[in-house]
Nucleic acid binder design. Structure first.
Lengths: 229, 229
DNA sequence: CTACTTAATAGAACACCGTTCAATTAATCA
DNA sequence: TGATTAATTGAACGGTGTTCTATTAAGTAG
């Protein structure tokens, strides 16, 4: 009876979702579970890192659901990364954890890795070019997907003013060799990043990057003239 | 007399370079400086985050040196991101800090942002397409560049064995619907990621991603048929 | 049902951490 | 010189991750 690992991991996810990763603590988790901190260590391993790994695994578990094998390799890759983006979107505060997971040697979801590798192998990549293609997808897309998007500041106008001040003071500051006065930033084009809210622009940019990378891989797989078998 | 901000920030960089970001602490930094912790707060601001921002700013300060305006916008983008990758490469342990910086609303180096925006504007992007192109570069490349590359494990054979075990046990574990037995991973193709050491494969993959993204942007800027002025 | 073994939990303790604050020394300027 | 400001100290507050020993609950064999 009593607590089990699943409950602990779910509680951790809920806590991170609500209060953010920075505010997470083992002791606080134990507190909300009404239990001694030692219980968490007993169930989940001797390191906070172990708990985080479980969290990553749970969230990325559904990554390869709904992948249909009869799709082209391009569409399968599209599906799997869109789904990735969707899952992260449901737990945005956990995103940095998934990013860290991805960048380290430990990959939570081996089936997902296999799915990506299989698509690339079908495209004709092999050996070092397979490694590069894999790294391009992981590095480019996962990096983007696991970004914790900062929402537009509450006081958008005030922030914009602060930003404008920073730009105005930049010459005197430390960049004497700047040609002009940063005209593009000054014209507030940069603020477009938050136009219509972060999510809209994020989705649109994500689709653009997805297209660019998959197009690029398609081109390169054909240039190699590799067996499609 | 005494300490100044520059010394503190440099000491912080040195400490992170040597012991890693996880091991960094304000108190330890004060200890190696032979000084009370409060001194750091007095010089650098009330938050650890402020110190990290300074660190990011110092490391990315040289980002736009050696950019020659007569280059094509593509080559300028190539230069600026290769330089970014080079700077991060010199302080790999600081990389997560730069990544976090990039993903938040605060961007350390405004001149760098302006340089990227200027190149994209010259390419013909404007309005929302400029925003997307900017996000594609930032999200795709910076995400890749600021990855803290995990080096090959010390005991590569042992790690490989552990990995193979994980793969072998995966069906019984939790993925009953897996078609085969993860043949690609099993064939150790995945381990290619570390073949010849992380750096070599990393550079090669980085160049591939850089080419793919800049080619993709070139294509899209032409398709729009925008004014080149 | 009882003895024994194993699974879970509690609580205190250790060694840190970031940050603040009043008091104090060092430097500067009138 | 004296007064003001710049730097620095040391102690303190309220946390943190993790470990350890002791204790209770659950399950199992006789």
């Amino acid at each position: 009876m009593g607590l089990d690992k699943t409950q602990i991991v779910n509680a951790a996810i809920e806590q991170i979702d609500q209060r953010g990763l920075a505010a997470f603590s083992m002791r606080e988790l134990a507190r909300t579970l009404g239990v001694s901190p030692a219980v968490i260590y007993w169930h989940v391993g001797g390191r906070q890192e172990d708990l985080f790994a479980e969290v990553s695994a749970v969230i990325t578990a559904a990554l390869t659901d709904e992948i249909e094998p009869e799709q082209s390799w391009q569409d399968r890759l599209r599906s799997v990364f869109r789904r990735y983006r969707y899952l992260v979107h449901q737990h945005p505060k956990v995103a940095p954890l998934l990013g860290a997971q991805m960048k380290s040697n430990g990959v939570a979801n081996l089936v997902w890795v296999e799915t990506v590798l299989a698509a690339l192998a079908e495209a004709g990549f092999e050996g070092e070019s397979l490694r590069d293609a894999f790294n391009v997808l992981i590095g480019g897309l996962s990096g983007f997907v696991t970004m914790e998007l900062a929402p537009p500041p509450d006081d958008a106008d005030g922030w914009q003013q602060t930003f404008a001040d920073r730009v105005a003071n930049i010459d005197a500051d430390s960049f004497p060799h700047t040609h002009a006065v940063l005209p593009l930033i000054s014209n507030r084009i940069f603020v477009l990043r938050w136009q219509n809210g972060a999510d809209v622009s994020y989705d649109s940019s994500f689709e653009m990057l997805l297209d660019i990378i998959i197009d690029g891989l398609t081109l390169r797989s054909q240039q190699q003239g590799v067996s499609r078998r």
